[in-house]
Amino acid sequence: MSDPTKPRSDTGPPGIALPGRAGGNPLGRLTEAGHMGLLVAIALLVVVGLVTKPAAFATTSNLVSILSLAATIGVITVGATFVIIGGGIDLSVGAIMALASVWATTVATQEFGPVVMAICAILVGTGTGLVNGLLIAYGRLVPFIATLAMLVAARGLAQRMSDRKTQLIQPENSAIVELSTTRVLGVPLLVYIFALVVALGWVLLNRTTFGRRTYAVGGNPEAARLAGIDVRRHTMLLYALSGLCCGIAAVLIMARTTTGSSTHGDLYELDAIAAVIIGGTLLTGGRGTIIGSILGLLIFTLITNLFILNGLNTSDQLIAKGLIIVVAVLLQRRNLKERAP
């Protein structure tokens, strides 16, 4: 039937040989068009940092702290990108992360050592996400409502388990904390974990049937269904995947704060969704990229960093972030119109 030996290089459109274009990636054109603006924005923010605080901004320790800050929400953002491309929304990410961190740091769990604690956090996250998925895919709840309910309930459960107390990681389990203190080439391990999750997320979205189906289910669920895709099962898996990311994020926040707490991750859902939107993913589903989301998140983190370095008011920081969301979406809408046939 096909010829697997066919060279890859000639699969681009004839006559439009663009150097450096992402080969035959079906979304190559989109990713490029969308990411330029984000990269420009990041460059601008870097220039602002260099001009206002040249001594403090461009240090290794500052850059590492930016990445460490971004890591926790970053992992959540990867999951959120899948859910939103798949046409859904997950409001419960922060609460799931809090619940996972509490469950993994109870006295009972801590007895089993750091590996079990990490596995526990990931299982709790995935399981909670799976509950979301079941409610949405098979219980036919609207995603907004199902995950809003989970947001409230998971945080409540976390409070109950921890008795509203911050649970410290015991010294014998300090291997978890070492994820943030151990550095390789000057960079903490948790940043590598973040990078690994992003890489795996990118592969999953761009190179597997799962990713292709995610675009299909979000872009046109009816067409996906009539093409023989099990839309419900896929929807359920998307929320489980989001929960899995929350579990990984819980391990990272435990490492950074040395605690599990029901107050972890408050309002993370808003930052994650904002990052995804700024990154060019449509809230209506069917279109978006992991790279865009991560760039969007970096923009947010850079703003936080610049405001702190310059000793500015955190309220102003929120105002600036709000403006960025609006501007980003307005710019993207213009891009979309220009590209429409």
């Binding site: 079906p26 989109l30 675009y215 299909a216 046109n220 009816e222 067409a223 093409a227 069917g286």
Partner: peptide
């Protein structure tokens, strides 16, 4: 368009 195609996709 509504039931078969992913219009944005290749």
């Amino acid at each position: 368009k509504a039931q078969a195609l992913l219009l944005d996709q290749s």
